[in-house]
Design a protein around this nucleic acid. Structure first.
Lengths: 199, 199
DNA sequence: CAACGTATACTGACTAGTGAGTGTACGCAA
DNA sequence: TTGCGTACACTCACTAGTCAGTATACGTTG
């Protein structure tokens, strides 16, 4: 029955997700994940070749849903591009205030696995951030913003910076400061262009 | 001989620094640090009460030198505030291209120790980032920039974002994109203020 | 349709090695 | 001779991964 296998696999990934995100990858043992999933370690190893495989599956499972959530924030917000970015960072701050919030799983994994350069989880993390950047760039271009790729990259830098700062200081207001900066970046361009044309 | 004790202690911190930064805190054992310092684990435990103490000492030793380096970049650069910020991020990109570069030790430690909220190393990391932010704010105020504290915070967000993105993508050009954003933020303000006054 | 073979999904007990931290003895300087 | 700094040898808990074996479902064949 391949259906059962998929169910079990999902249960393992869900358990891994909770634990890896909550405590960090190295801090969580394969036994811990198995126990949380309600099965033995040997069964886990039936479904995954190694802990590294499990880590990769954990991040892969977070990729799409995360993008849907963030872009959902953006698309649901009313107003200008700046207003939409403000909303994204405001939502981020809201998440950051939740007691179970532990930063960005992708960034923290990248930090933990920094010594294993070819790790599939690192590739998944990099790809995820690139996708998010591309989603921003597409919307910026749609809105007629100058240099949409560059601005998308800069907004991503603020996005990741906000994750880092919120984690460091345990202060969600950093996301709001990042939001203000993002607004300035997508509005400032137009102001400067107008000024240049007049000169 | 308290002098010898200090020398030994420094040797241990230097060894810990190399290893913790290079491989991550959890990936490095106390035995590894002792071996690299050229002494036994028992001697290390004579000088440090626990591994946690050693981690805190590792970050404490990096605090001041890091600030001196970054502010040295800024103060050595010629030109406007924007030019100086461009120089800071350009230097950051230069470091990021070094093969031994492994991101920001403070941020990576924060990511690894996320489950131990009161950890002295986390406090040291947060204090370090605050100090850096204050150094930026002081220089921004000196230069007559509007809202220097807010701008300093936003530049720090770009700073930490650049660390994260460079680590994620192994691409130092992210620091340069962050530098461009920082320049826009410290220049854009003036442009907007002028525009408002005219209106 | 009953007996059999086989793949699926699972388990408990284990290995070999590593982790942080410690008890105790010994040399050497003041 | 006191006590500081160092080393060896150790404990005990934990870790990734493995061995050998089992229950169940299901298609095939006599």
């Amino acid at each position: 029955m391949p259906k059962n296998a998929a169910i079990t696999r999902n249960r393992i990934v869900a358990a891994a997700s909770k634990l890896f995100y909550g405590h960090g990858i190295r801090a969580v043992s394969v036994d811990d994940v198995a126990a949380r999933a309600g099965l033995t370690k040997r069964t886990l190893y039936y479904h995954f070749r190694s802990k590294d495989d499990l880590i990769a599956a954990y991040l892969a499972a977070r990729d799409e849903p995360t993008i849907v959530i963030v872009m959902g924030w953006m698309d649901a917000a009313k107003g200008t591009l700046a207003d939409k970015l403000e909303a994204v960072f405001a939502q981020m701050a809201r998440l950051g205030r939740h007691p179970k919030w532990r930063g960005c799983g992708f960034l923290r994994t990248a930090a933990e696995l920094v010594t294993t350069p070819g790790h599939p989880a690192l590739k998944a993390g990099a790809a995820h951030k690139k996708k998010l950047e591309a989603e921003f760039a597409g919307r910026f271009a749609q809105a007629g913003l100058d240099a949409p790729e560059m601005r998308a990259r800069q907004v991503m830098l603020l996005f990741d910076g906000a994750f880092s700062a919120m984690l460091t200081h345990r202060d969600a207001s950093y996301a709001e400061a990042a939001g203000q900066a993002a607004m300035d970046l997508v509005r400032g361009e137009k102001v400067r262009v107008v000024a240049k044309r007049r000169a």
